[in-house]
Design a binder for these strands. Structure first.
Lengths: 112, 112
DNA sequence: TTTATTCATCGTAATATTGCAATGTAACTA
DNA sequence: TAGTTACATTGCAATATTACGATGAATAAA
């Protein structure tokens, strides 16, 4: 049915899945990496950088913005995007929470 | 067109996106957490635990297996799944690589 | 051998995602 | 004001995902 049954899961599970979905496209990974390295970016630069159409980039930027991973501020004619630090730290925390469950349960003893 | 232009991106970007996609569903997060906590699991238990149909769970398990995050071994009538440790560590490494770019570039100075 | 159990696979319906051309909108410029 | 620039939004086509009933395959028990 193409619709996820979110009511079956915990808030954390849904949040983690939603964040993972935001990262689940190489263009969005590339945008985030570009942002992390150059502090900020604009749509036009990314069109040159990534080779996708302007409309497509804009759509990916909107997704990242809706999730809260990035924020954009108008600078004259163009829009400057940058990482949303607080959210980014929260994301790191959630993923590390998952990874820690592995490190705490599996690394020491022989599981499977 | 519903098809990702993977050729525009690096291997790492595509790999990270593919892994994120595997985590981009709360049922798969729940399965992984259950596995991390109880070392192993079988389809039937997850049906009870998650409340999704058996066919649906099987499909999610297959996705996780195809990516390499888990592995399954036949135990009589049932199939026992468990975390694939090596792959899991690799995943951790890739995500941490992304997170580190943030920690190295943003945390110290005032970016945006 | 028949029956039950457990999981995988198939087929299908509903919905979501990806990508882009075309168009809309807001701000700067002459 | 008219034109230009930089993005956003809309509308659409192609493809992917999610979910589940029905069915298939393999093992164990009677």
């Amino acid at each position: 049915m193409g619709i996820t049954k979110t009511d079956l899961f915990t808030a954390d599970q849904n949040e983690l899945a939603t964040l993972a979905k935001a990262l689940a496209h190489p263009a969005r990974i590339a945008i985030l990496q570009y942002l992390l390295r150059s502090k900020k970016c604009i749509n036009g630069t990314l069109v040159q950088e990534l080779g996708l159409a302007q409309a497509t980039i804009s759509q990916h930027l909107r997704e990242l913005k809706e999730i809260g991973l990035i924020k954009g501020s108008i600078e004259g004619v163009s829009v400057s995007y940058c990482i949303h630090s607080e959210k980014w730290e929260q994301v790191q925390g959630l993923f590390n929470g998952l990874f820690d469950e592995f490190n705490n349960s599996c690394e020491s003893d022989t599981c499977c």
